[in-house]
């Protein structure tokens, strides 16, 4: 999967799970502070990434995915390795 496809898929998942507009999904957007998620939404979001990309994201790593940009970078790196 190339990096554009990853990015598109991540954005689509965020849009569906958090019920937000595409325009809000900018790299600096923080899931909790900007996209109105609560801590349980972020767990569900991570689970949706796991399902979509068929990977497991250990709980220790969850804190590394606090913004849209961080999520995209994390997933790109994870899928490259």
């Amino acid at each position: 999967m190339d990096s554009e496809a990853i990015e598109a898929k991540v954005k689509q998942i965020i849009m569906e799970k958090l019920n937000v507009e595409e325009s809000e999904i900018v790299p600096s957007a923080n899931f909790i502070e900007d996209l109105r998620a609560d801590s349980l939404d972020t767990v569900e979001l991570v689970m949706a990434f796991e399902d979509a990309f068929q990977i497991t994201i250990p709980l220790e790593d969850q804190d590394k995915l606090q913004t849209v940009g961080q999520a995209i970078d994390y997933l790109k790196e994870k899928l490259a390795s």
Partner: peptide
């Protein structure tokens, strides 16, 4: 709770 949450759904 946080760890249980994910486990429970899965």
């Amino acid at each position: 709770g946080n760890r249980i949450f994910k486990n429970a759904i899965r």
